[in-house]
Design a protein around this nucleic acid. Structure first.
Length: 576
RNA sequence: GCCGACUUAGCGUAAUAGGUAGCGCAACUGACUUGUAAUCAGUAGGUUGGGGGUUCGAUUCCCUCAGUCGGCACCA
């Protein structure tokens, strides 16, 4: 996946293409006023005020046609620098451009670019001529708040993308198509993984096949966390409102919390697991010798997300965080974080997911001492480097209660998802007055980390569906082996024997003994993305061996039963 | 929540300038007895997302509610 913004030439082309779009829109909708048209990672957009006219998806073709016409006409793109007064005069009928000009610093060089009958306020740079803009595509229209503020009116935004060659454009359009094919909502339905009912928008149901994947992930999670020295808890879904007042969540997130009135008391369904985790910590005394204490919880949380935000498994109203709270002494932070980074690295590698780490630092609104912040940020960054990773800084993007490391994974299509996060919390240990007993018998405040690796199991499954295009590796696959006898009359008995043998070895196996042609059943094996298809015919019956085909491969491999089992155990245990 | 589009059988879809809906797959029944991506025939399946309105008549037009999708805003 290409990042237009990071490629100087393409970035300039896309910016010019945004102007070309604006010019075309102006031709077709003379009343149109334009806000801004920046380059983004996947092309460009332009925000447009059309009064009461509406541009619809089907209008894009028409606009594109006009853009092509202008491009063919081949006008040069000319830069002109203006004084503030000249600029205000030039754009006097355009409140949006006036707003832009008035918000410019005094030392900004004001410039505009003209191409034929169209002029736009812009700092540039641009390509020499609209002639250069040949391989572009308008992709979607939507509403967008003026200046990105939900209190402002909504403008219409048109998205597009431009390339320097036809091949590059086609490649991108193919990429979009491929992504569409992999859509987890579509595959989830086709493969019987999950469903969402209109009775519960944002509340996914996992179906049998999805549950297999879910449980495999959970089992794997427990196993790895046990190896890493974690303990496990399960805290209640619902707790008295007073707890949320104490934690501060009631004040900050009340609007998004589900509540229930019982016996004249308000209970709130947990939107996060930490307050419960704090209570667990406080349930017993802790010695400095017991630290670091690592407490894991697969905690199901509920958050009332805006209806328009919901999206398959990616954005839901209930999800399971693979949460953990780590309590430690100050001198243990660095080591613990390095350990965590290595842990997360190990987990992502299992799924063939590469990733980048970003450090988000102190935001404007923060709590705690600035020295503690600086020190914490330094420790996080250093741990990142010491574990052999680059660390991109995201200034001011930390939580109000502490800095964090975010893990951005890259899927097989090159799309980036934020999943893991390690957050230092300077708020809750204070609010809950967490302590441990130090060497000299005095109470000390522990340092606390929150962390997730998958983030949300539901969302992670959504990402995996798209990452694998529904063709899961054997260890995750709902059905691992599909057994097809060529002819039920002669081969079913042996096929049953094989099926039973595999079942006894904890392989998820399916026997397809329907009275259908081999081709038909084989096709279904492929369509349902079953990783291994065993075909049992006379040859196999006679030799007492097994022939199998791997999903996506043409060849048939014939092996003995024990070799087959060995092969299966290898791919499953080693998660190949 | 906001802007726009969409909602027809389990799934994917067609149709009517307003005259009560077709097709494919799946399902079921029967025939076929099969060696690497769809055997043939038949049967059943729909108050066209819910409610309201206009009309002699609404799946089609209008209003409204819900949901879905693409964005925006939000994302502890």
């Amino acid at each position: 996946m290409i990042n237009i913004k990071e490629n100087e030439k393409l970035s300039m082309m896309n910016h010019s293409c945004a102007h070309l779009l604006a010019q075309a829109v102006k031709h077709l909708y003379p009343k149109a006023l334009f806000w801004v048209g920046p380059v983004i990672e996947e092309g460009f957009y332009y925000d447009i005020d059309l009064g009461d006219e509406v541009i619809k998806e089907e209008d894009l073709e028409k606009i594109e046609k006009e853009m092509k016409k202008i491009s063919k006409d081949g006008k040069r793109i000319v830069r002109q620098e203006l004084s503030r007064e000249e600029a205000l005069e030039k754009f006097k009928n355009d409140p949006y451009k006036i707003d832009l000009i008035n918000n410019m610093d005094d030392d900004t060089v004001i410039s505009c670019y003209s191409q034929g009958d169209f002029t736009d306020l812009c700092r540039g740079p641009h390509v020499e001529s609209v002639k250069e803009l040949k391989y572009f595509k308008l992709l979607k229209v939507s509403g967008a708040y003026w200046k990105g503020d939900a209190h402002n009116k909504m403008l219409q935004r048109i998205y597009g993308i431009c390339f320097d060659t036809k091949e590059a454009l086609d490649e991108h359009l193919n990429f979009l198509e491929e992504a569409k094919k992999r859509d987890h909502k579509k595959l989830g339905k086709e493969l019987g993984l999950f469903m969402i009912s209109e009775y519960g928008p944002g509340f996914p149901f996992f179906l049998n096949n999805g549950m297999v994947i879910y449980n495999e992930l959970v089992n794997y999670w427990y196993k790895e966390h046990t190896k890493e020295g974690y303990e496990f808890v399960k805290t209640p879904i619902m707790l008295n409102k007073e707890l949320w007042e104490l934690s501060g969540h009631w004040f900050n997130y009340r609007e998004n919390m589900y509540t229930s009135e019982i016996d004249d008391k308000t209970f709130a369904i947990k939107p996060m697991n930490c307050p419960g985790g704090m209570l667990v910590y406080k349930n017993s005394l802790h010695s400095y010798k017991d630290l670091p204490l690592r407490v894991g919880e697969l905690g199901q949380v509920h958050r009332h997300e805006a209806s328009g935000a919901l999206n398959g498994l990616f954005r839901v109203r209930t999800f399971t965080q693979d949460d953990a709270h780590l309590f430690m002494r100050k001198d243990q932070i660095e080591e613990e974080i390095i350990r965590l980074i290595n842990f997360i690295d190990r987990v992502y590698k299992v799924f063939n997911l590469s990733y980048d780490i970003e450090l988000s630092t102190r935001p404007e609104k923060y709590i705690g001492d600035i020295e503690v912040w600086n020190e914490s940020e330094r420790v996080l960054e250093e741990a990142c480097h010491k574990s052999g990773h680059d660390c991109k800084i995201n200034p001011g993007d930390g939580a109000f209660y502490g800095p964090k490391l975010d893990f951005h994974i890259k899927d097989s299509l090159g799309r980036v998802w934020q999943c893991g996060t390690i957050q230092l919390d300077m708020n809750l240990p204070e609010r809950f007055d967490l302590t441990y007993i130090d060497k000299d018998g005095k109470k000390e405040r522990p340092v606390m980390l929150h962390r997730v690796i998958f983030g949300s199991i539901e969302r992670f499954i959504g990402i995996l569906i798209e990452h694998y295009a529904g063709a899961f590796p054997v260890w995750l696959s709902p059905v691992q082996v599909n057994v097809i006898p060529v002819n039920n009359e002669y081969h079913l008995e042996y096929a049953k024997e094989i099926t039973k043998m595999l079942e006894e070895n904890d392989i998820r196996v399916k026997l397809d003994d329907r009275e259908e042609k081999l081709g038909y059943r084989l096709r279904e094996s492929v369509v349902k993305k079953m990783p291994i298809t065993v075909i049992i015919g006379q040859k196999e019956v006679d030799a007492k061996n097994i022939s199998y085909r791997l999903l996506g491969k043409e060849e048939t491999i014939t092996v003995s039963q024990s070799e087959f089992l060995e092969y299966l155990k290898d791919v499953i245990v080693n998660k190949k």
